[in-house]
């Protein structure tokens, strides 16, 4: 059984509803939501939890030839309790970067699972090639892209300290929500390094097929990186 309003202004309410994926006007069965909507809600919640505990598939990384570095996160439980552990690379990984990556590139691309491995599985194949097209159009040279397991946004500064890129973009899985568990963000910073603040960084968020279109996000990130390098600034100082 589904109850709705009295029909007054229903057209207008429907028009408002079309602007949000929120669970509005689902009706009720007795004192609780209808069974279908209740199950949908629990399914979405379970998917969000799974995304946090899931891992990025090896095939995803192989497709783009990304090698893996680790932060000091140790395991998922520790990672969730101590966010700071996801901002620093292990000593072994730091040595690996020095060994395998081009030093001081114009643009450094880093991919990380963050809070949703699925975000990377679902969106990397659309965002990364579009971003590389955009780098070519904007005349930007890329360093050696790699993957970071157990990363937080602040890991950009540790990588910046080690590789000294002009600009760095981190493609990272977002905290899952009830609308989607596979949403990616792209954080960008000009000359990242220890001491950088949130106001120095910029972000394009909500990247997934139902949000910010992944291919167009990749294209736009390229434009932003060019502007960052042109203006030698990022975050609130950048004139977009």
């Amino acid at each position: 059984m589904k109850e709705t309003g009295d029909g007054q202004g229903t057209d207008r309410f429907r028009a408002w509803m079309s602007h949000t994926p929120a669970r509005l006007d689902v009706g009720r069965a007795g004192t609780r939501p209808p069974t279908k909507d209740m199950l949908r809600f629990r399914l979405d919640h379970a998917a969000a939890v799974d995304a946090v505990y899931g891992e990025v598939k090896p095939e995803t990384l192989d497709e783009f030839g990304l090698f893996s570095a680790d932060t000091q996160y140790r395991d998922k439980e520790h990672y969730l309790k101590y966010p700071g552990s996801g901002r620093l690379l292990t000593e072994e990984s730091a040595r690996m970067l020095a060994d395998r990556c081009v030093s001081a590139p114009q643009v450094q691309i880093v991919v990380s699972d963050g809070l949703s491995g699925r975000a990377i599985d679902d969106n990397l194949a659309d965002v990364l090639p579009a971003l590389r097209d955009a780098l070519a159009v904007n005349g930007l040279a890329e360093g050696t892209a790699f993957f970071v397991r157990g990363g937080r946004v602040g890991v950009m500064d540790d990588i910046g300290r080690l590789l000294k890129p002009e600009a760095l973009v981190l493609l990272i899985g977002e905290r899952p929500g009830l609308v989607t568990a596979a949403s990616m963000s792209a954080y960008m910073c000009y000359r990242p390094g220890p001491g950088r603040r949130d106001s120095d960084r910029m972000v394009i968020s909500n990247i997934h097929p139902g949000g910010t279109p992944p291919v167009e996000a990749g294209a736009h990130i390229g434009t932003l990186l060019r502007k960052m390098i042109e203006q030698q600034a990022s975050g609130v100082k950048l004139d977009v």
Partner: peptide, 14 residues
Amino acid sequence: SNDMAKSLGNRLFG
């Protein structure tokens, strides 16, 4: 009609 002009343009340019 879709939001894809910049990425399509970039791809075509290449």
